[in-house]
Write a protein that binds this DNA or RNA. Structure first.
Lengths: 154, 154
DNA sequence: AGCATTTCCTTTACGTATAAAATGTTTTTA
DNA sequence: TAAAAACATTTTATACGTAAAGGAAATGCT
């Protein structure tokens, strides 16, 4: 009973916290870098894979739908920040990767992003940050287990 | 340096956690209640204000744009779950409130929602939930202070 | 080889989200 | 009190986001 309420309150608090940060971040990305969080996420993923990622890998990593990635890739591509490269052995697949310009742009954004987050979360000590991140990780792992159980039951 | 990384990691973890829950929740709301989280949020806010809320109050409470609320209200209204009521003294304003059907529907959804969250967060003990929620609240308050400082500086 | 299935990506239809402009109404101010 | 400013909401243009359907290519099975 009451424990359910406690968990609901935690969920509402998590949601409010993340949305608050996201809203502030959106404003900053738009004003300072003429970009958005989804675009940043895509470029960030690509920056960790210099050889590029297939569209399906990208949507898997980002946990968004295929069609969503198609649209973001279109726009980034129009601006010359990413490029689509054919995959030798498979004419269905396409690899997306950062261009030189895209990499340079991302590095600037990433640096500013880290500083911005550090400032925005300045009320959280590094120890607290590590502790909270670890706890969230634990609980994600627990949820993962539950999910697998459910999935196995098919 | 390192502390910035710790805070960034916390932010990424928060984002991933919330998005994971949101994705699962979206699926559940769609399948079991033929609705969405934004619709649920609107109905939830209205349920806490039986006399209704002006559109601007609603977008203020939910922290979303005016135009956004307009669209959601349109769809809920088409389904007879909410109604727009003229405000006596002010012909610019409109109050949105739940209909009888909307209230009944919301109560069903809210009950199921609470149970679903409780299950989804079953890996978090009630004590942990309270502790984490409190810490998030503290840090939101700290951010609030920082914001006010910034705002005052105008 | 041949035909069904699966895989990969895009397209479509729709619902959210914002910012900015437009519309109509009230209030303020000169 | 007429003009200007502030307000409340909607509309517009654009960008995400999903689910579901579609087209092309690879795979698998017989």
């Amino acid at each position: 009973m009451t424990e359910a309420k406690d968990r609901v309150r935690l969920w509402l608090r998590l949601l409010k916290t993340v949305r608050g940060i996201e809203n502030d971040l959106r404003e900053t990305l738009r004003r300072d870098h003429k970009t958005t969080l989804p675009r940043f996420d895509v470029m960030s993923a690509l920056s960790r894979h210099p050889q590029g990622l297939k569209m399906s890998q990208l949507s898997g990593v980002l946990r968004v739908s295929n069609g969503n990635v198609t649209g973001i890739a279109d726009r980034l591509s129009d601006e010359g920040l990413v490029e689509r490269v054919a995959v030798p052995g498979d004419r269905r697949a396409i690899v997306l990767r950062l261009t030189q310009a895209g990499l340079a742009e991302f590095e600037t954004q990433a640096q500013a992003h880290e500083e911005w987050i550090n400032e925005r979360l300045s009320g959280v000590s590094p120890e607290e940050a590590r502790a909270m991140a670890a706890r969230l990780q634990d609980f994600a792992d627990a949820a993962e287990m539950t999910m697998e159980k459910t999935t196995d039951a098919q």
